[in-house]
């Protein structure tokens, strides 16, 4: 038996479908599940077919949850200085974080909106396949962020070395002894956290979106699945909506003509944009 056959078992007998994930990464993560449980493929399959709780455990182990506050500071600085203000005239700004993981980027974006005086207009849908990650995001309690350089990141985003500490104190309750920071309630008011599998589930809301954030999620999918998901993002966005991808993700083929690259982000447009 191979990992491909195991993925077929998952697809046919559970709510999850990883069959169009990037081969190397999914293979290695399944190998790791087998190692951790000291199981062969046959044992893994048998347990998968008989134990729903175990299936959830496998899904948690397969999915990747690494994220940071303001990962790639240049992107956030662009959003803050040049981009988010285009939605200032909106009555409501609808934002979907697809694959929000433990929520750091959800709160990063809301910090920017609050600094721009636009926080009350925001309505955020934050979705992820991992219930554990969502639970953490809802709590908003983070360890080891100071050690990982979040203050420096804050300063870079606002282009001011003094700003890092200020932002930290303004938006977080800080326990510096234990390096634990807790998101203050003002950032949490307008967020709905929803468990959602981007691959299998329909949209968990009826709203059209102004901004779709989906950073370093599509990299785990093969090119065909990526195209399907980007089509969904295209459909759910308003016509001047913004799609924000990871620093090394891009749109392929057809979609290059349906979005306009603006700095590091993609803006949906009705016209065609031919790129040479």
């Amino acid at each position: 038996m191979t990992y491909k056959e195991y993925l077929r078992v998952l697809k046919e007998h559970t709510p999850y479908d990883f069959s169009e994930y990037s081969d190397n990464s999914i293979n290695r993560r399944i190998q790791k599940v087998m190692q951790d449980h000291k199981m062969t493929f046959d044992e893994l399959t048998a347990r998968t077919l008989s134990d729903n709780r175990f299936v959830e455990e496998v899904v948690e182990a397969i999915t990747v949850n690494t994220t940071d506050f303001f990962r790639d500071p240049e992107l956030w600085r662009f959003l803050f200085e040049k981009h988010l203000s285009i939605y200032r005239k909106n009555g409501v700004i609808n934002i979907w974080h697809a694959g929000c993981s433990t929520g750091q980027e959800v709160f990063s974006l809301l910090i920017l909106f609050n600094e721009l005086g636009m926080l009350p207009k925001t309505r955020v849908f934050a979705t992820d396949i991992s219930q554990k990650a969502l639970d953490k995001a809802k709590e908003g309690i983070y360890k080891h962020q100071i050690e990982r350089g979040c203050i420096d990141n804050f300063s870079k985003v606002f282009n001011d070395p003094k700003k890092g500490e200020q932002i930290l104190d303004k938006y977080f309750d800080v326990d510096s002894m234990n390096d634990i920071i807790t998101v203050k309630p003002l950032l949490k008011k307008n967020i709905k956290f929803i468990r959602h599998d981007l691959v299998k589930n329909g949209l968990p809301f009826y709203n059209k979106m102004d901004i779709v954030f989906c950073r370093n999620v599509l990299i785990y999918f093969n090119a065909k699945l990526q195209t399907r998901i980007i089509q969904r993002f295209f459909d759910v966005l308003f016509s001047n909506g913004t799609l924000v991808l990871g620093a090394h993700e891009s749109l392929n083929g057809f979609f290059k003509t349906k979005f306009e690259k603006t700095g590091p982000v993609f803006k949906k447009s009705n016209g065609f944009h031919f790129r040479c």
């Binding site: 081969d23 990747v64 370093n216 990299i219 785990y220 990871g246």
Partner: peptide, 21 residues
Amino acid sequence: APSNYHLFVEFDGTVSLSTEE
């Protein structure tokens, strides 16, 4: 390989990136 990403070579001769641990 870009900084802060793992890089994998795939069967079809493409590369996949990853932010895994």
